[in-house]
Amino acid sequence: MSNNPVDFNVLSTLRDVMEAEYPALLQVFISDSVNRVNDMTLLLRDPSFTAASTASLQRLGLMAHSFKGSTGNMGATHLSELCLQLEEQGRGLVAADDARIRRLVSEIKEEFYAVRKIFEDELQLCHASH
C-alpha cells in the first residue's frame, strides 16, 4: 500500500470539473471498480487460469488496461501504476510469471481498498457539507 493512494490535486480538479456530479462520479467509480477487482479475483481463482494460456492472459490484460485508465483519471496514481504492470504481464510485453501476476492482483485489491476508503470519506464530506 502506498503512502498517498490518491493525488489530492487531481481530486480537487475533479471536484471543479464535476461540480454537483462529483459525489455521483465517486460513487460510480467505487461500484464499477468493485466489479473489476472481483472479476480479476474470479479470473485467477478459475482452475483453468494459467500464465501459459494466451487467452487468459489477454483477458486479464484488457481488464488491467481498462482499470488503469479509470484509476488514472481518478488520481489513484499508484493503483494505476500497478494496473500498468499487470497489463504488461497480460499483454505479453514482459515474460509472464504466474506468481508475479497473483501478487500484483492482490496488491491491486489492497490498494483499491485504500483508495475506496478515501473516496468514501470524500463522499461523507460531500454529504456533510450539504
Binding site: 475533479l14 470539473v17 464535476m18 461540480e19 456530479e21 455521483a24 462520479l25 460510480v28 467509480f29 464499477d32 471498480s33 481498462s66 485508465g69 479509470s70 483519471n73 481518478m74
Partner: peptide, 13 residues
C-alpha cells in the same frame, strides 16, 4: 467508452 467513470468525467469536461 466502456468505462463508466471515464465516460462521466469526459462528458463533464
Amino acid at each position: 467508452d466502456d468505462n463508466v467513470s471515464d465516460r462521466m468525467l469526459l462528458s463533464a469536461i
